[in-house]
C-alpha cells in the first residue's frame, strides 16, 4: 500500500491498543511501546505490528522503536508528564512530522500549546460534547415548544 504510514504509539492501555488495532487493520505499520508486557494482551489477535517493551522516557527504547523513521507519533499513557516528555522528544529530537499527546490536565494542555506540542485533552473534548448535547437539546426543546 502506497499511503501506508509508520506509526509509533506509546502506551498500550485502552486508548493505545484501540488505536493500534484500528491503524494496523487499516494497513499501516504500527509499533506499540509499553512498560508492562501484559498490556499487550489488550491488542487484538489481528494486530500485525510490533511490540516494544520498555520505558519510553528512555532514549534507548525510542531508538529501538525506530522513531527516526516514524511519520506519526501518539503518546497515550495515563501519565500526563510521560506523554508530554516523549512527545517533545519525538517532535524536537527525532523530528517526527506529526505528534499528538493525550493530556488529562487542561492547564498543562495550554502550556504545551505554547511549546508547540499538539495535545488532546479528554476532559475538554468530553466537556465540549456534553455542552453541545445540552445546546442541541435546548434547541430541540425550543422547536417542540413552537
Amino acid at each position: 500500500m502506497n499511503n501506508s504510514l509508520y506509526i509509533v504509539i506509546v502506551g498500550c492501555g485502552r486508548l493505545g491498543s484501540h488505536l493500534a488495532d484500528q491503524l494496523s487493520r487499516a494497513g499501516h505499520s504500527v509499533v506499540v511501546i509499553d512498560k508492562k508486557e501484559d498490556t499487550f494482551n489488550e491488542l487484538s489477535a489481528a494486530f500485525s505490528g510490533f511490540r516494544v517493551m520498555g520505558d519510553a522516557t528512555r532514549m534507548a527504547v525510542l531508538k529501538e522503536a525506530k522513531l527516526k523513521q516514524a511519520d506519526v507519533f501518539f503518546a497515550t499513557t495515563h501519565e500526563d508528564n510521560v506523554n508530554l516528555m516523549v512527545a517533545q522528544v519525538a517532535r524536537k529530537i527525532f523530528r517526527v512530522p506529526q505528534v499528538l499527546a493525550r493530556v488529562f490536565d487542561p492547564k498543562r494542555e495550554q502550556v504545551y500549546d505554547r511549546l508547540g506540542i499538539e495535545t488532546i485533552c479528554p476532559t475538554s473534548v468530553a466537556a465540549e460534547v456534553f455542552l453541545m448535547a445540552v445546546a442541541s437539546g435546548q434547541s430541540a426543546g425550543g422547536q417542540e415548544a413552537t
Binding site: T57, E79, D80, V82, L84, M85, Q88, R108, V111
Partner: peptide, 9 residues
C-alpha cells in the same frame, strides 16, 4: 525525569 522536565517547563 518526566516530572522534573514538566515542572521546569
Amino acid at each position: 525525569d518526566q516530572d522534573n522536565l514538566v515542572i521546569c517547563q
